[in-house]
């Protein structure tokens, strides 16, 4: 059986009377893209936050590489190999593109408590940063200010920062959002190749991308996983069609 890299077991989270996650158990296996879909307000982002460590679940556990990381904070989970991209770009807008990816390289490698040598003069970090930019196609924008990038380029930069960490698993929250048809296609091809490096838990509303990429899909409705299966199983599942996909005929 394929190795499970990332797993949630019985995750539950409530905000007052609203239950955002109900006993959610999903797993991400080596080499796969597991898409998490569902209508707005289904609790996808809340679940991602609990997996990444920025929100503590009321109950349940998160496992990364077989280790229980539920008690660990975001930074410690990242150190253990969890790479995350955000739904709304969380980049240092006043910094250059290269500085943003170098930050990722810094987190992955050397200690940030170096006070003397210029970060951008560190050849090892710079190589990791430039390689990540090259891979997402932003190599010509290294010295551009991040605030000047287009929306699509910021999404690419988000992915580049996650790449510098060389993670064991990616958690991507709507990486295609606002990309346009061409941008979505390019990123779809890129993510398709990326799964061989590390599996991807993909939250996405772009159904064309999801159906093109996903090995498995879990459908979240009102905080609850109502179905998990292959693309075909999900597309033909009457509960999923009723709750989210609708009738394709």
């Amino acid at each position: 059986m394929t190795k499970v890299i990332l797993e949630t077991r019985g995750i539950s989270k409530s905000f007052g009377a609203l239950q955002a996650s109900k006993d959610v158990s999903i797993d991400l296996r080596a080499g796969e893209i597991h898409a998490l879909i569902g209508p707005n307000g289904a609790g996808k982002s809340t679940l991602i936050k609990q997996i990444a460590g920025s929100l503590a679940p009321d109950a349940g556990q998160v496992f990364l590489n077989g280790q229980d990381v539920t008690a660990l904070k975001t930074a410690a989970r990242a150190k253990r190999g969890l790479g995350r991209t955000f739904q709304i770009s969380a980049l240092a807008m006043e910094d250059t593109v290269l500085q943003n990816v170098t930050l990722g390289a810094l987190g992955a490698g050397a200690s940030p408590f170096q006070f003397w040598r210029a970060a951008l003069d560190d050849q090892a970090m710079r190589a990791v940063a430039e390689d990540a930019l090259q891979r997402v196609g932003l190599q010509d924008h290294a010295s551009a200010m991040t605030a000047e990038l287009s929306h699509g380029q910021r999404r690419q930069l988000e992915v580049a920062v996650a790449l510098t960490l060389k993670p064991r698993a990616f958690v991507m929250d709507e990486p295609m959002a606002g990309l346009g048809t061409e941008g979505s296609k390019r990123l779809t091809v890129f993510l398709d190749g990326l799964r061989a490096e590390a599996p991807i838990l993909l939250v996405e509303h772009d159904m064309d991308a999801v159906f093109a990429l996903a090995d498995r899909i879990s459908v979240l409705v009102y905080g609850e996983v109502i179905a998990t299966g292959t693309v075909h199983e999900i597309r033909t599942n009457p509960d999923v069609r009723a709750a989210y996909l609708g009738d394709e005929e």
Binding site: A52, K73, A75, L91, A110, P112
Partner: peptide, 25 residues
């Protein structure tokens, strides 16, 4: 200090603490 790895990370933490945490710092 401002150009060092520490300065880079501190300046980024001022702008987006969530990002800095996500890269393991």
């Amino acid at each position: 200090l401002a150009k060092s790895p520490f300065g880079l990370a501190l300046n980024a933490a001022r702008q987006t603490a969530e990002r800095v945490e996500t890269v393991g710092i």
